[in-house]
Deep mutational scan, measured.
Amino acid sequence: GEDLPLPPGWSVDWTMRGRKYYIDHNTNTTHWSHPLESGPSSG
């Protein structure tokens, strides 16, 4: 998808195989999909 801006506290990194993933430092979790690309989340 597009390179959307990341929310505060997020960063992007790549695996050893070159796969892009996103790090949420607020909750110390990692995600394969961009936080703003996922569907609407409630709460």
Rank of each mutant, 00 (worst) to 15 (best):
T30K: 13
K20F: 04
R17I: 10
D3G: 08
S33F: 14
E37T: 09
S41C: 14
T27E: 02
D3S: 10
S38A: 12
G9V: 00
P40M: 13
H34N: 05
G39W: 11
P5R: 08
P5C: 02
L4D: 09
T27Y: 03
D13A: 15
S11H: 07
S41V: 13
T30A: 09
I23N: 02
G43T: 13
P35G: 01
W32Q: 05
G1S: 11
H25M: 07
N26I: 08
D13S: 13
W32I: 03
V12K: 04
W32N: 03
G43L: 12
I23F: 07
H25P: 02
T15Q: 03
W14Q: 12
E2R: 09
I23D: 02
P7K: 00
W10I: 00
S33Q: 13
G1L: 09
H34L: 09
W14M: 12
W10H: 00
V12L: 07
T15I: 04
W10P: 00
K20A: 06
D13C: 15
T30H: 11
L4V: 12
P40V: 13
G18V: 02
R19G: 07
P40G: 14
N26G: 05
S33L: 13
S38F: 09
P35I: 02
G9S: 02
S38L: 12
D3H: 09
D24E: 02
T15K: 03
N26T: 09
W14P: 07
N28H: 09
G18T: 01
S33G: 08
R19M: 11
T27R: 04
D24I: 00
W32E: 04
H25G: 08
P35T: 03
P7A: 01
L4Q: 09
G18Y: 04
P35Q: 03
G18S: 02
P5N: 13
Y21P: 01
L36Q: 05
T15M: 03
R19V: 14
R17K: 14
P8E: 08
G43Y: 11
Y22F: 08
W32K: 03
G39E: 10
S11L: 04
P5A: 13
S38M: 11
L6F: 02
L6D: 15
H34D: 02
T27H: 04
P40S: 13
G39R: 12
W10V: 01
G1V: 11
G9H: 03
Y21E: 01
G43N: 12
D24A: 02
T29C: 06
P35R: 01
I23A: 01
M16T: 15
T30R: 13
S11F: 04
G39T: 13
R19Y: 13
M16P: 15
N28T: 05
G9M: 02
Y22P: 00
D13R: 15
N28L: 05
H31P: 00
E37M: 14
D13I: 07
P7V: 00
I23G: 01
L36T: 07
E2I: 09
G9L: 01
Y21V: 07
T27W: 02
P35W: 03
D13P: 00
S38K: 13
L4P: 15
S41T: 11
P40R: 11
G1A: 12
P5V: 08
S42R: 13
T29V: 05
S33Y: 12
L6A: 00
G9R: 01
Y21Q: 03
D24Y: 01
E2Q: 10
I23W: 07
G18R: 03
L4A: 13
G9E: 01
L36D: 06
W10M: 00
G39Y: 10
R17N: 15
L4K: 09
G1N: 12
L4R: 08
T29G: 02
D13V: 09
E37K: 12
S11N: 05
P5H: 09
N26Y: 07
R17M: 14
L36K: 06
L36F: 10
Y22D: 01
H25K: 06
N26Q: 07
I23C: 04
G43I: 10
T27V: 01
P5S: 12
G18F: 04
H31W: 11
G18K: 02
L4F: 13
S11T: 13
S41A: 13
G43K: 11
T29H: 04
W14R: 11
P7G: 01
H25L: 06
D24Q: 02
N26D: 04
L36V: 06
S11K: 06
P8A: 07
D24K: 02
H25V: 04
L6T: 01
K20E: 05
G39K: 13
W32S: 04
L4W: 13
E2W: 08
D24T: 01
W10D: 00
N28M: 07
G18M: 04
D24W: 02
P8R: 05
M16W: 13
P7M: 00
R19A: 10
G18H: 04
E37D: 10
W10N: 00
P7E: 01
I23H: 04
T29R: 06
D3K: 08
P5I: 07
T27S: 07
L36R: 06
G9D: 02
T30I: 15
G1D: 11
N28A: 07
R17Y: 15
G39I: 11
H34W: 05
V12W: 10
D3N: 10
P8V: 06
E2S: 11
T29I: 05
T29D: 03
W32F: 07
L4C: 14
S11I: 05
V12A: 06
T29M: 05
H31F: 06
R19D: 13
H31S: 09
D24H: 04
Y22K: 01
S41K: 12
N26S: 08
S11A: 08
I23T: 07
P35Y: 03
P40N: 10
H34I: 06
H25Y: 07
I23L: 06
P35V: 03
D24S: 02
W14S: 09
P8I: 05
L4T: 14
Y22V: 00
P8Y: 06
V12I: 10
W32P: 04
H31I: 03
L6R: 14
S41N: 10
E37Q: 12
